[in-house]
Each structure stands twice: as C-alpha cells, then as structure tokens.
Write a protein that binds this DNA or RNA. Structure first.
Lengths: 336, 336
DNA sequence: CACGATGCATGCAACGTTGCAAAGTGTGAG
DNA sequence: CTCACACTTTGCAACGTTGCATGCATCGTG
C-alpha cells in the first residue's frame, strides 16, 4: 500500500491539512514545519493520489486528442507538438484514434463527457459541423482543421483555400498547363478537401486555365496507396497532366511512386506538390514540394483556446476562429 | 452541472445503490426497476464520474505507454496496435514521449506511480536495466525491445541478434563483400543497438568476411538525418561499401538519399537493408528491404503480460522474457 | 402454517484529497 | 496589560462512487 496524506501527517507530527498545504504550497507554512513534512514525504515516498484529487477538484489534468490515426506522419507530428504544449500547462494528453469514422468520432465525444478529460481537441473527419457544435455545449472542445462549425467549439486551421490556390499558382508559374488535383472527397462532411479543391479551382481560373473534371481525382483516404491509385488512373488517360497538386504529402508520395513506375520523371515530366510538410517529404527522391502549415502554432493556439474554456467560465466565450499561417515550400518535385 | 447517481435515483424513485447496480449490472435488479432507472439515466444524460469510481476501486482503467517519440513511424505503428489491443481489454492508453533521455524516462516511471495508470509499457532508450527493474517493484511494468533486465519487469522483443545476422547474411548472399553497418550506439545502455551489431558481426564472420571498424558507423539517433550523415561519411572513404545494413528503416531512408546524391544507384552499386518494416519503406524508390518484427504480436503479448500483472497479484510472477517472431522482407533495395 | 431460501432493494461507510471557517499562537501598538 | 492583527495550523465536511451488511417481501417446501 502506498503512503497517503494521513501517514505523512502522522510521521511529521502535524495535521493532514498541513501536509496538503505543503504539497500544494498553498497558504503559509512555517519553514521548520515545511522542512519536517518534506522529509516525511521523502521517507515514505509519498505520491499524491490523483483520483482523489480529481474527485475533489472536479478536474482531471487530462485532455483528449482525437485524430483519425496516430501513425500518420502529419498527425504524429501534431500530436507531439500538442503534448509538449500541454505539458507546459500541466496537462497530460490522452490520444485517441477515430479511424475517421463518424461512429468512433461520435463515441469519443460522448465518452469524453465521462469526466475523464477536462477538454478535447479533435481533428474531425466524418462528423458534421452540427454534431460537433452540439457536443461543445457540454464540454470544452477545440476543433482542428475545420471551419464553420456551429455551437461554441473553437477552430484552429490554416487558410486552406489560399494555400491550395498558392500551390496551384506555383505549378502554373512553372509553365505547366495541365494541372491535376488528387485528394477530393465529395462524400465527406469534413470541409477541408472541399476547401483545397476550391483553392485549386481558383488557382486555375486565375491563370486562365480551364477546370477539367477529368483532372480532379477523388480518394477514399489520404494515404499513399490512394495517391498511387489516383496517379495511375491519371496516367492511363491521354494526355497526361504535366503537374499534380496532391491534398496531402502522403498522397504525393504514392503518386510519385506511380509516376516512376510509369517510366516518367519528376519534375521533368510531371511536377508534384503535396500538403502538410511531413518529414518524409524532405528526404525522399526527389524531395517533395509542399504546403507547410505552422504546426507549432496550431498546437499552441489550440491549447490556448482550450485553456481559456476550461479555466474561464464554460460557454461564456463565443466560438473563435483562429487562422494559423502557412507557407509554400518549393523543393525538387516542383522545380527547386 | 452534470447529473450524478443521486439525481438519477431521485428521478427514478429508487436508492442510489440500486442505480449503481443497474449501471454496473451487478447484483439482481427487477426488470421493471431497471427499465425505470435506464430511462432516468437517459433523460438526465447521466455519465459515471470516473474520478470517483477510480478512487473507490483503486484502479484507473488507464495504462501508460512511454516511447522515445510518437511521430516516428515505427513507434507510431506500435502505439496504434497497442491502443487497439488495450481497447479490447477495456483499457485506455496514455501515450508519453521520453525523447530517449534518461531523465524523462525516469520521470515518467516515477510519475506513473501517482496512481494515474494501472500499469506501464515502456520502450526504454537510455535507462539502465537496473533502474527499470527497480521501478517494476512498485508498479506493473512491461519493457519493449530490451532484454536482460533485473527486477520483475516483463520483456517483449524479437531476437535482435538473429535478425541482424540474417539481414547481413542476405547481403553477403547477394555477392557483396564490403558490408557496412549504420546504427551503432555505444554510448547507450539500451542493449538493442549492441545486439544488432553483434548479429552483424556474426553474419560477417560466418561468411568468412573480416569485421572492419571503418565500416561500422555510430549514430546519435535512428533518424533519417543520421543515416544520411553516416552514409555520406562512408562514401567519402575509399573503397565504398557495396552493401549497408541499417539498424532502422529511417536510417536506411536517409542513407538511400545520400547514395543517390552521390550519383550512385541502389541496389546496383550499394545494396541496402533496413529494420522495422515501416510503411514508408514499401513506397519509396527503390522499395526498401527490411527486417519485419511481428508488431501485432508485440502489442498483443505486451498487453497480455501487463494484464497478468495488474489483475494477478503484483510481484507474484517472476519476470518473463517473451520473444516475438520476425522475418526478412527482401525488396528492391536488396535485389528483389 | 411455519420456516428457511431467494430475490430485490437499501443505508452506511469509506476511498484520499482539498475548501472552508475557525482556532490557536505570537507580536506590536495603544 | 490588553487588544487587534497577522501568521500558522487545524477539524470537519464534501467530491461521487461502490463494498458490505442488512432489511424486507415473496416464494417454495416440509
């Protein structure tokens, strides 16, 4: 059995309350007493029982992070940054994976109401904005990568439309005329893909190029396989695109492989730009041009929003929309 | 304020205790009563307060997972599999990142004694076996990827020596005579690198080849950059190696890039084999040969061990050593 | 009909901590 | 010498849940 406050108190010859005061250095404690208590704590290897503390205080020190998948490089990096930022604020992060299914996303939001976590950061995939908004009434919620949600959930994201427009514009600036897009997901209520598609169309239109349905490929996920599959489909139809804007770096890596398998060269025959700036893109051959969201700032701002809601009066703040900067990183795959 | 048992009890016109019985379907409850209680629970949107439950029961339903980094593909995949396996057992996984520093590893083990988690799974990097053993006395601990630890911690790992030997033997079987190794970490107490080095040496010796110090490169981490750096160093000295066994796929991906930058071809000029079988290796160009540990089984066995310790009497079982199978996957980078 | 067995429901206490209010101690000013 | 005041310490209650023991019907059996 582990030592508890009572044991420490007995050992140090003071009241339970005084030990608690020392542990939390709340209220004034005489230096001599503090010394004695600390010594007792050390001797008995006392560790506060978090369950009891949480019960008493009504907070758990845990926040939930729900992402479609942990192993994806993008979410992995985001998760790591969030954990750091959380630690600075004394929080521990509970990571959960939604697989991108509406059912798991819903279940997590409901489960998060079991007082397990003080708040939740979610990167939704299938859930409708309305549903997200409904839950934010019950518990502090920050949504990543999604705009325009009802309710009181805060939102942290980059300007996806602008980012996609810039990426497309860059490909056009290279002299490419048949710029394809891989990554549309019309079946999802998640608006991110639609925003990037919108930016892509705007980029083409601004350059006076037509928007061709045949150059826009839908995918079932943002994984390499899907990029591979979509690129192969593009290559089967004549004429080829001479550039492709992929809605994620992983899609781009899959596409890259398909182009090489087809005996063509990147960027000579087909230029590629991805999205997310994952580490792999910096080391593959050729290195991958990409749109780089400021991930550190995403993590920082998301936690700031959450802290405001958890410590401020819940529901008092209106929903906030935080836009984080991004930049286009030109590497070999797009003519660097 | 959220509803509690008392509120539900009042609503349903029964005692608090009966509601608790319904929630946990413990003890017999008359169908009619159960119905009434469930209805009240639904109306009030009651959710059990985990902090209170944990305090009462002395368990938290959380287990800790400490890995050097979350964003690394290998640990990301392992984490995901562990989360699945944990969920099957009603556990939630709390992921923590150690950065591979002894200080953070130590802090996590100590922190895990705050009754936050029921047990811990750790992939140690810098901590000495003795230190790990010491903590396993206080809390159920399962160690991944490390052998020969004192104390009562269980160990789950593949046979690293054999795996490295096989990888080396394969390169030799391709006709390569100057087989280098990238990934030694003599400064670490973590034994994994040493075991792989041992297997590498055995593989060379078995083929009648000399073990050359100049062909064995140390690294500071298992990241791409380090693989890149180490490979460049190997290329600067004449004569080149004609094959390289990297102690991780990430090292191999960095090395691959260095070889290409140097104007050489993989596998024609230099064959490469990595370790871990991460997803990236299947899609890069050329695809990466690798040693593939059975990750699913690692996760499954680790959780089995932990469950045995948490639910069985702590400390009653002697330390167990579980060896999980692996296999060599030959892809383009090693002559497929 | 009496009695024990069974099924169902309940009240009390406790898990380890902290908020609150108040008690005790000592110091300096009036 | 007394009183006000600051400093330090304390006891009690409560957070929401479940283990334990027990009460109260009802039922089946001898």
């Amino acid at each position: 059995m582990t030592a508890k406050l009572k044991d420490v108190a007995a050992r140090a010859g003071v009241s339970v309350r005084t030990v608690s005061n020392v542990v939390n250095n709340a209220s004034a404690v005489a230096p001599a007493t503090r010394e004695r208590v600390l010594h007792a704590i050390d001797e008995l290897r006392y560790r506060p029982n978090l369950a009891a503390r949480n019960l008493r205080q009504g907070r758990t020190g845990l926040i939930g992070l729900a992402v479609p998948e942990v192993r994806s490089p993008y979410f992995g990096e985001i998760a790591e940054l969030l954990i750091d930022a959380a630690q600075d604020r004394g929080w521990t992060v509970l990571i959960d994976r939604t697989d991108g299914t509406a059912e798991r996303e819903r279940r997590l939001l409901e489960g998060s109401e079991k007082h397990t976590v003080d708040g939740m950061i979610m990167s939704p995939w299938s859930l409708t904005p309305e549903e997200l908004g409904r839950h934010s009434a019950t518990m502090p919620l920050v949504v990543l990568g999604e705009q325009e949600t009802g309710g009181t959930a805060d939102h942290v994201a980059i300007d996806n439309v602008a980012a996609a427009r810039e990426a497309t514009a860059h490909l056009v600036a290279l002299g490419r005329r048949r710029v394809a897009a891989i990554g549309l997901q019309p079946q999802l209520s998640n608006g991110t893909a639609e925003q990037r598609a919108q930016g892509y169309r705007e980029g083409l239109t601004a350059a006076g190029l037509p928007v061709e349905a045949l150059l826009m490929r839908t995918v079932a996920s943002l994984h390499r396989e899907e990029g591979f599959r979509a690129m192969r489909a593009l290559l089967e139809a004549e004429p080829f695109p001479d550039a492709v804007f992929c809605f994620s770096d992983e899609l781009a890596l899959g596409a890259l492989r398909a182009v090489r398998d087809h005996g063509l060269s990147v960027p000579a025959d087909i230029a590629l730009i991805g999205f997310d700036d994952i580490e792999d893109g910096r080391y593959c051959v050729p290195s991958l041009a990409t749109v780089s969201p400021d991930k550190r700032q995403i993590a920082e701002r998301a936690l700031q929003c959450l802290a405001d809601r958890v410590y401020g009066r819940l529901g008092h703040l209106p929903a906030r929309q935080v836009t984080v900067p991004h930049r286009l990183i030109v590497r070999e795959s797009a003519g660097a």
